[in-house]
């Protein structure tokens, strides 16, 4: 048995250990704010792990979503709830303990059963020999996209990705439906929260210099997804994060003047509409749904290039939806649904 030194197992084990520590700490801490921050650190560690596993697209996404957006959403919610958990809990429900015992038994069984799994990182394992070589070998000739992850994501499995965009769209809708019904009584209570003027010069200066760079970078990530890690999802999250940063450094009103509520809603639906619309256009041209080859005639290029352009177009759709949804989630969660005052 040999293993490749390119996978530094000492490094892996160190990160995994730190992840376990972070996970336990996040659950054990009494303060919810610190828990949220530790969860962010946990996400960041998992990014390192994934980068090391050569899953750069995934690590990129997790860095943008898990370490950044999720933490902000946690913090936005934490300002509306009791920030310290109560410790004195004498009674425990019996059902929970039974569940716990079952869970531990399952854990031991599953850990024991890892013996049966193919060796980690084995190039001859079934997962690496059945479908994946075909993707790697054919993707470039069939879609003209060197980033195989993008090709699989937005073409071979584009039906999944469309519904991924629909999932985030649904999340924005659900949060809106749940939160934006503020009773009068509650609105009075919301007025008591501290107002933030958002006049800190250092923060504003930093925001002013970072945000344009962020947005350009987001566009780069989106449009360069064919050739480098990234794509619609990552680009969209970064673009959305720029608006969130604006809201954090100034205040929510300021960012909502730049990106209005209606525009957010239109973008949420519009991105998915672009994606599904392209699919439907292919269907109308006599191909199957999302068969981008159908667009070859319209674009005046070969089938393969049409697929490449199709990928770009749907990535833009994903980007728009994700950007708007991230902003919408932040706006709703950080303001408790009334869109008056943010984090």
């Amino acid at each position: 048995m040999t293993w490749d030194t390119s996978l530094l197992w000492q490094f892996d084990i160190l990160i995994l250990l730190m992840m376990v520590i972070c996970a336990v700490t996040a659950l054990a801490l009494e303060g919810l704010l610190s828990s949220a921050i530790v969860t962010g650190a946990y996400s960041f560690l998992i990014c390192l792990m994934w980068t090391h596993m050569r899953a750069v697209d995934v690590a990129f996404t997790e860095a943008a979503v898990g370490a950044a957006i999720s933490t902000v959403l946690f913090l936005g919610t934490a300002q509306y709830v009791n920030r310290w958990i109560k410790k004195d809990r004498p009674r425990e429900q019996g059902i929970k303990q039974i569940t716990l015992v079952i869970a531990v038994i399952c854990a031991v069984m599953m850990l024991n059963a890892t013996r049966d799994l193919p060796e980690w990182a084995d190039p001859a394992s079934p997962a690496s020999t059945h479908l994946s070589p075909r993707y790697i070998e054919q993707a470039y000739f069939e879609t003209a996209t060197p980033n195989v992850v993008t090709a699989v994501l937005a073409d071979y499995r584009s039906y999944d990705t469309m519904f991924e965009a629909v999932v985030v769209f649904a999340a924005a809708l659900v949060v809106m439906v749940v939160l934006r019904r503020t009773s009068h009584k509650h609105r009075m209570a919301l007025h008591l929260r501290p107002k933030r003027a958002g006049r800190d010069t250092v923060l504003r200066g930093a925001a002013q210099s970072i945000i344009p760079v962020m947005q350009i970078f987001a566009l780069y990530v989106l449009f360069h997804g064919h050739y480098s890690p990234g794509g619609g999802f990552q680009g969209g999250v970064i673009f959305g994060a720029s608006f969130i940063l604006l809201a954090l450094c100034y205040n929510l009103k300021f960012s909502m003047n730049r990106f209005r509520e209606h525009a957010v809603l239109w973008c949420c639906a519009g991105g998915v509409l672009l994606y599904a619309g392209i699919g439907a256009a292919c269907l109308a041209m006599g191909w199957n749904f999302l068969g981008y080859g159908a667009l070859a005639g319209v674009l005046g290029v070969s089938d393969v290039m049409a697929r490449s352009h199709g990928i770009l177009a749907v990535e833009i759709g994903v980007g728009i939806t994700v950007m708007a949804v991230m902003v919408s989630l932040y706006n709703d969660l950080a303001s408790g649904g009334d869109l008056e005052e943010g984090l």
């Binding site: 898990g66 957006i69 997962a127 993707y135 790697i136 994501l153 999802f233």
Partner: peptide, 16 residues
């Protein structure tokens, strides 16, 4: 690449 694609989708579902 296939697990990466699946997980990209699953991360999005997670944040939703």
């Amino acid at each position: 690449p296939l697990p990466h694609v699946l997980i990209l989708t699953a991360i999005v579902v997670g944040v939703a």
